[in-house]
Simulated assay, not measured.
Amino acid sequence: MSAVFLPTGTVGNEAKLWPSGPYVFSDEMGGYRITSVSGKGTRTDPIVITEEFFSATPVTMTIRARQPIALYDGSGNFVNGILYMRIDALNNSGLPWVEFEFELQEVPNRPSTFTDGLSFDQRSESPEVIKSSRFARFSRDFEPYDRLLFRDGKVDPRKTASFGFLITDYTPRLTFYLVQDPRIPSS
């Protein structure tokens, strides 16, 4: 399977493609803005994505391969089904966030299933790489969704929260999606 090589630059009027490691990241679906991306996606050099949220509504990041798939290659130069990430999200929504959920999808707006191989390190029973600077606990849901919910914390407006996790994809695809959902108090 060959990679999709995409040029960097503006997509439409606003979105930009952000290459880093073997991937390209995009905010092309709107609702938030990526401001920087760095890293290779390895345990020692995770992809670090800095973002700004303008509202407290779900947004979707598009993640595309820009290098070929080479399973078992740990160099960070190829798509290998293992992607360490850190998201630094600035809350510029004007509302406090009391939870934050991530969901993986191979097809936009369609839940991930067991057969797609995509998850937040589903095989690990003690995921030490899942952490947040602002939330004390997390839970993971698998099948028919692959979700990671951070809770027991708060991100005030104009503050930043960091989230670290591992995405595994045992049947790697050239494009997949990361839905991000900041949650506000219900009353």
Rank of each mutant, 00 (worst) to 15 (best):
F100V: 04
V179L: 13
R147V: 02
S26H: 05
R86P: 01
N92I: 01
V24F: 05
P182F: 00
F54M: 06
L148R: 04
A161G: 15
Q122P: 00
P19Q: 10
P58V: 07
S55Y: 11
R110W: 14
T50N: 11
F5Q: 14
P96T: 00
S36L: 11
P172F: 02
T115H: 11
N77I: 04
T50Y: 02
A56M: 01
I82P: 03
T44L: 06
L83G: 08
L148S: 09
F163I: 08
L148G: 06
Y170D: 14
I82E: 12
Y170M: 11
P46A: 02
M1D: 15
W18C: 04
Q67A: 15
P111S: 03
P58F: 07
P127N: 15
P182W: 00
S186A: 13
I184K: 00
N13S: 14
P58I: 08
Q105D: 05
V107D: 11
I82T: 12
E128G: 15
E14C: 08
S2V: 11
L6G: 03
F53K: 01
L174N: 13
V155G: 00
K40I: 01
F53P: 00
F5D: 13
S139Q: 13
G81D: 07
A89K: 01
D156M: 10
P172L: 06
Y177N: 03
F176M: 05
G76N: 09
G21T: 07
R66W: 05
F138C: 02
E52I: 13
V4Q: 11
G31I: 03
S162D: 06
S38H: 03
I184F: 00
T42P: 02
P7D: 08
T115V: 10
P68N: 14
T60Q: 15
G94F: 00
N92M: 06
T168M: 12
Q122T: 05
I49C: 09
S75M: 10
A89Y: 02
D121S: 12
G117F: 11
E143M: 07
M1K: 04
R64F: 06
T44K: 05
K40L: 15
N91A: 01
F25K: 05
D169L: 11
T168F: 13
T160F: 04
E125W: 09
F54H: 11
I130S: 10
